[in-house]
Each structure stands twice: as C-alpha cells, then as structure tokens.
Design a protein around this nucleic acid. Structure first.
Lengths: 343, 343
DNA sequence: TTGAAAGCGATACCAG
DNA sequence: CTGGTATCGCTTTCAA
C-alpha cells in the first residue's frame, strides 16, 4: 500500500496539492483554503506554518478544482471583431487594467461575423466564464439565446445598445456621425461625401451611415447616393475612396470618413496629389489618434473614449459579480468632435 | 429523498449536466462524454438520441469539470508587454488564428515589467493553462523557475532566445539592427544617430542598441554617445528625438529609429520643418506598416514577421501538446530590410 | 460499443 | 478558529 508514496517518487512531479500543504503545516486543507482567501482568519502561528509550506513547495492553488467546487470561475470573456485593430486594443487594455490578475481575461475575435461571435460565446460558456463583454450589439439568434440563458453578466460595448441583453456601455455611433455631418454642414460644405466600413454584420458602421443620412435630411438636403460608399479598412483604401469620390462627383467639397484610418489615408493621398485640404476638399475622420493629430494638416475627427469604455465595462461586470449593483445599466460615455485644420 | 427533483424545481436553472443528457437519451454519461469527443464511436441510433437531447436543452459541456477530471485544460496563456501596442496585436492575431475556438486564449500584459510578467505567469499556472507564450525573453528568477517547474510547453517570441526556457520563435533584434546600420553605412552615411525605446527590462531594445553599436565598430567607426538615445514610444516622441539629435550634433546625416512609430513621427516632423528627407537627413525605421509605406517619402524600414511569429508559436505549442514534436526548437523567422526613399 | 465506480483538487456547509 | 464530509461535473480505468 505504498502506492501513494511510490507514484510520487516514480512519476515525479504530480504537482503539490492543497492537502500536501495542509499536511506539512499540520492542519486540514480547509484551513489552507481559508488562508488563501483571507490571511487574517487563522491564528498567526498557523498562518506562518502554512505560508512556510507554500513557499517551500512553490504551491500554486488549482483554480480549476476551486472553480468546480464553487461552481464559478473568475475568468472574464471578451469578444472583439478583430484582434488586429488597434482601436479594439484600447478597449482591451481598459478591460485588462481593471480586471487585474485576479480575473484572467479570455479573448476571442469574431472576425466581424455573427457566426464567429456565436462560436466564441459557446466556447466561453464552456469555460464557465463569470461574465462576457462583447463589442457587437448585433448577434445571431442562438448567440443571443445562449447569453440570455447563461445568466451571467453580459456587457455590450460597441454601439450603445437600446435593448441590451443585459448591460451596455459606449456611445451612439449614429449621434456621433450625425454630429460630425452637422458640423460640416455648419462650416458651409454642401456636397459632403461619406465613407464607412462594410455595414454587413457591423451595426456600428450601419449606425454611422444612418446618422450621416439623418443629419442631411434634417438640413433638408438630399444625399447623393454616388458619394455614399463603403470601403474596406486601411490607409490605402481611404486614399482610393477619396480618388473615387472626386472622380465621380467633382463638385464634392468635403468627405466624412467614418472608419478607423480611412481619413488619414485620404489625407495622405490628397497631399500626394497636391490638393489643398480643406480648400479643395475638406476631410473629417473618426477615432482620433496621435496619428490623425500629427499629419498635415491635422485632422478634424470624432474622438471616442475607447479605453474608458473598456474600464467601465470591466467595472460594471465586477460590481455586478460582487453584488454591489444590479439592474440593466446603460452607460453613455459620449464622444467629442476634435476640431482641427482639415475641415 | 426527492431532494434532487425538488432542488431542480426550487432553485430553478442549475444548468444542464451531462448526466441529464444521458438520462434523456437513455444512456450512461460515459456514452455522452464519448460522443462529445468523437461522434463516430457509438451506434447511429444512440447518437441521434443524444444529439436530440443536446440541442433540445442547449447543453454546453462544462470544461471546468472536464479539465479537473482529465487534469489538463485547453487554455493557452499569452503574455505581451502591452495590450495597447498594435505590434503585439499582430502576434496575438497570429496566435489566435491558429489556436481557434478549441483552445481558448488567455491574455495578460506585463506592463513591460518583469514583476508584471511574473504575476501573470502565476495567474496562468493557477488556471492550469496547457502552455504559455511569452513575448519577453528576460524573466524574473521566480518567473523563470515557475515556468521550468510547471512542465508545460513554453514559447518565447520577442527576441530570438539563445537559451530558451523551452522553445523560441522570432528573429534576432541584434542582427536586424546591425543589418540596418550597415545598410546606412553602405549608403554613405557617416554620422548615424540611433534611437530606441527604454532598454530597462526590455531585451529587444537592448539587443537593437547592441546591434547598432556592433555594426559601427565592425566598420571601425566610433559611436558618438550624444546621438545614441532612448526615447518613449509614440509619434511625437519620434519627432522630438529627431529635433534633439539635430540640435545636439548638427552634422548628423541619418537616424535609425528602432522602435515602433518613432521613425514616422520623425519623418512628419522633418516634413513640418521643411527638411528634405533623405537629403538633409536620412530616416530609417523598424516594424514596417502600411503607415510607414504611405508617408512621403515612404520609409526605409525593417520588417518583422510578427503575424507569422504568432502562428508559428501557436503551431509549435499545439504540436508539442499533441505529441507530434518534442525537443527545444529554436525557429528563426528572420527579418527584411524594406528599401524605400527615406534612406 | 457501453457502463459502473473511482477519482480529479478544491470549496460549502455544518459541527465542534 | 478549525475540521469532517459531501459534493462539483466530468474523465479514467476497467469490466462486461
């Protein structure tokens, strides 16, 4: 019956368990378990024996077992449309900063597809994450159903959801686009083009287009469908979009690029062609960054509080978990128009 | 003894368990477990009953319990210096693309500090990740010890480690910096400045500085310490570095910016000041991107296969886990010098 | 091909 | 403050 000792010696490292620590310290594993949560709930003498055992062995508690026993994990799941895009990186950083090491962060990208999001949701639920943060507010029926069914906090951050599954934090893409369009109208531009990312499966792009169209109709202007286009992401793509718009409707006097670095690409292209911005054509962008501020002329853009959105999302999640809050919060963090020389 | 039925009704949703599915399908839970791994190992009739039960209930297997029983998870841990930096986003994307939904990805940032990395390592080991990918090749003693002790695959990717803990994939920052410096020397520049990110806790920056110095001494040139500087990251920072260098040593004829977007910032600053690049001063950068290609003049840069590094790292990890490989692979994915107009 | 029994390594819940 | 005992929901192992 030396099986135990034998296998420890024979098979080598099987990993230190809580029971081993308990044995070394001459206590039960419950005491060890308690110490791990709260050092101040045992006698000092006991505590020091336990701590000695822990760092003699380098024991790292098994959260998998702990999670099974307590029926919950500390893992937070985050799904973004793309891991490559630095915009989402801001939000990820915000989330990560608030969560800290006590709440491991699991990240998946949906590849901008509803199906991809659904797959990620299922994977996360399989891991029994304690909460989920999503960038999309549009979901597949199954995805939405799983989230509802799971009964865990869920925060949607991409567009300010009017009917969130649970909670939402963000800003209104529609209002932001509308505001920028009105700003351009206020500056006297009358042939304002609009470029956004593909709207399929992307509620944010769709909302921005709607905001642009809204603003025009509020001003009793008719949108010219020839200069309302969708474009893939990227600097070059922005340049190409600008070239295209000017060719199709030469009298165009301003363009609002509502996606990522499109505006910067357009500005670089304008510079290359020797077009004076904003005299020949005004350019407005979105998602302000150091880059948009550093080009010449600096770009007028929308600024979104992406980092703060990540922080708030994580914050709301943690509050809900700790029972300090409940209810279907919808937090609007707004946006700003950053006025610079380009429009 | 109607406890079971009672508690299900009383406490409501407790989540469907494998045993429930088994009961519904009239089989044992072992059979359900098997089906989940390999649909083709049970009789078709049994299979369809089980599948019917699964999607009638929306059952999502509990990986926490599964992991405890099998003593291993499918979770991969990834630690990067910063989640904000789009460079690392490339690698993250590569890792994520290879892992897919079967291997959830846990991500933490070290905040460029060894202590931060150690904390993340401990957290990951607590979650019993099946493998770890690190961007740093310099670690705290405890961090290194934990990794060694854990006995799981570990891949270092930031700088090509000569003595990896386990496996390594990447490129030599030293060789790359040396190559770029030699390229500049070959173009006839003789007063070449060097700017890198802070070298503290950052083996990559340190290696690049060493490569620059190496190249100079191979050419029997003395480095001028006044124009070898460290600078924080960012476009503006790059511009400031350029201004500083030109002021301190006016005869400087080229600068190699070895970090991130520093070179782009410097180029924009040069343009602003009306300095002709490369006639007044040549500028070379690193970490090629669409941006560096799109500015005027386009930047000569080093290009690193960051996405591919992520893919290979994940690939090596998966291969090791599946037993298809072993051994301490060190994979050098190299680098390229992208020659453009700026230097 | 299928099932029964015995864990996996913690925590919950009571008792003392 | 401390310990015993019964899970947690699945996989392993062996037997049928």
């Amino acid at each position: 019956m030396k099986e135990t000792a034998d296998s420890e010696e024979t098979h080598g490292r099987r990993g230190t368990r809580m029971a081993d620590i308990a044995a070394m310290a001459g206590v039960s594993s419950m005491t060890v378990s308690r110490v791990l949560r709260d050092r101040s709930c045992v006698m000092p003498a006991t505590l020091s024996r336990i701590e000695a055992a822990i760092d003699a062995t380098g024991y790292v508690p098994n959260r998998v077992a702990g999670s099974l026993a307590s029926r919950r994990t500390d893992i937070v799941g985050l799904i973004v449309p793309s891991l490559r895009n630095s915009l989402f990186a801001e939000t990820i950083k915000g989330v990560s900063d608030i969560l800290g090491p006590m709440h491991p962060l699991m990240i998946a990208d949906s590849g901008y597809s509803l199906k991809g999001e659904e797959i990620a949701i299922r994977a996360f639920l399989g891991q029994r994450v304690c909460g989920i943060i999503l960038h999309n507010t549009k979901h597949s029926p199954r995805g939405r159903a799983m989230l509802l069914e799971a009964g865990i906090p869920c925060i949607e951050t991409g567009n300010l959801a009017q009917q969130p599954i649970d909670m939402a934090v963000g800003f209104s893409n529609r209002d932001a686009a509308s505001a920028m369009t009105m700003y351009l109208l206020g500056r006297g531009y009358r042939h304002i083009g609009f470029v956004c990312l593909p709207t399929k499966d992307n509620d944010r792009a769709a909302e921005r287009k709607a905001g642009y169209l809204n603003a025009l109709s509020h001003a009793s202007l008719l949108a010219d469908p020839r200069i309302v286009i969708e474009s893939p992401p990227g600097l070059k793509s922005g340049g190409q979009a600008l070239s295209y718009l000017v060719e199709v409707v030469p009298e165009i006097d301003a363009v609002f690029f509502s996606g990522d670095v499109l505006a910067t690409g357009a500005l670089l292209e304008a510079n290359r062609r020797g077009w004076i911005v904003p005299d020949r054509i005004a350019i407005a962008g979105s998602d302000d960054s150091e880059l948009q501020e550093s080009v010449s002329p600096p770009l007028t853009t929308l600024r979104f509080p992406r980092y703060e959105i990540g922080r708030r999302a994580a914050d709301m999640l943690l509050n809900r978990l700790s029972g300090r809050s409940s209810g279907r919060a919808i937090v609007d963090l707004g946006f700003e128009i950053i006025r610079r020389a380009s429009a």
